[in-house]
């Protein structure tokens, strides 16, 4: 069979020179000629006229190449973000997080209308006075579990998901570069963390404005501020909670570099989170709690003090930065030298 086939192809090359139409993929020699014509004028390195640094040696140096490299980084990040924000699973997570504040708002509205004037609980009383409070309330409900779940899914999937699907080897052979890929994956998770935070904040704000009277905001300290100032403080809280999610994403990303099963990295992160909560609940372990990541999650309520408790926010942010540095290093140490066998 083999010799016959070779003969056929050789024959086709000599005889069928005028026969241009081809079947998909079955390439007669005429096709080869066409391709040679099309390809020959191209230099070995692509677009050599534009890539100043991309000479024959394959070096990238100089300003143009530096610009190219930065552009390529943003392109990969854009591709990553598009992949994340188009994936139905991730959009479903965002949708769930958007719905919870609405449910919470409706629940509280019903509670406030059925309760008599003097019987309103502290929370409801707070809300009845100002619509902006629902945002902070939603954060305190979601920041300890549901938001971390969403962030862990994306960050835990980052490397392990690509490894499990086999696409990691093609990304690295492209070559995406290990450090570059890890950086892009982390930034992507951070953006998703802020998206999660923003979705909660925005839906809570809109629900609050729709269901509760606007006007001034009464703080935990008892003083009252204007709506404009209240919005500023919401922005502050979003920044803080987003940073908290970024710290969690670093942990999930580090775990993600150790496995080829995405669900393992996701579950691992959530187990760590739950263990932290258990430790926090045990009074005898109190000396440990300040070092646990979730302890700082709820410190966003510093923005509800008067004046804003910047010391608490700063301590929290420093703690997040420490977690990002530590787990980012672990992820890098593991990923940079890992044998990719998936």
């Amino acid at each position: 069979m083999s010799t016959a086939e070779t003969r056929t192809q050789a024959g086709a090359g000599a005889a069928a020179a005028g026969q241009l139409r081809r079947m998909p993929g079955l390439v007669p020699v005429t096709e080869t000629l066409r391709t040679v014509e099309r390809r020959a004028p191209e230099p070995l390195t692509r677009d050599a006229d534009e890539d100043a640094g991309e000479g024959t040696g394959g070096f990238t140096g100089g300003d143009a190449a530096g610009g190219l490299r930065i552009g390529a980084f943003w392109r990969l990040l854009g591709s990553e973000l598009a992949l994340t924000f188009r994936r139905p699973r991730n959009m479903a997570l965002l949708a769930v997080l958007g719905v919870v504040p609405v449910i919470l708002g409706i629940g509280l509205r019903l509670a406030s209308s059925t309760a008599g004037d003097g019987e309103m609980g502290g929370v409801v009383q707070n809300l009845a006075g100002n619509s902006l409070m629902l945002t902070f309330l939603s954060f305190s409900f979601l920041v300890l579990l549901l938001m971390p779940v969403a962030v862990s899914v994306v960050a835990g999937d980052a490397i392990a998901g690509e490894a499990g699907g086999g696409t990691l080897r093609y990304l690295l052979a492209a070559p995406a570069g290990r450090g570059r890929l890890l950086a892009v994956k982390y930034l992507n998770a951070v953006v998703f963390g802020y998206a999660v935070t923003a979705v909660v904040a925005v839906t809570a704000l809109l629900t609050g404005l729709a269901l509760f009277p606007g006007g001034s905001v009464t703080l935990l300290s008892g003083t009252t501020i204007t709506v404009g100032e209240g919005l500023l403080r919401i922005l502050l809280a979003v920044g803080y909670v987003g940073a908290a999610m970024a710290a969690l994403a670093a942990v999930a990303l580090a775990l993600s570099t150790f496995t080829e099963v995405a669900i393992g990295a996701i579950a691992g992160t959530l187990v760590l989170l739950v263990v932290c909560q258990v430790v926090r609940a045990v009074p005898a372990l109190a000396p440990v709690t300040p070092y646990l990541l979730p302890t700082r999650f709820t410190d966003f309520d510093g923005v509800l003090r008067d004046p804003v408790d910047y010391a608490a926010l700063r301590d929290g942010l420093l703690s997040f930065a420490a977690y990002i540095a530590l787990f980012g290093s672990i992820a890098w140490a593991r990923f940079s030298g890992k044998d990719i066998t998936s």
């Binding site: 552009g71 390529a72 990969l76 139905p88 086999g166 080897r169 492209a174 995406a176």
Partner: peptide, 28 residues
């Protein structure tokens, strides 16, 4: 390497765009 591996929820074209984006010397 060891058989094809792509994102199942993307089209063939979108998959190629993804891997092209990963190559720092490729132009958008």
């Amino acid at each position: 390497v060891e058989g094809p591996a792509f994102y199942p929820y993307l089209s063939g074209e979108a998959n190629l765009m993804r891997f092209d984006a990963a190559d720092p010397s490729a132009r958008r």
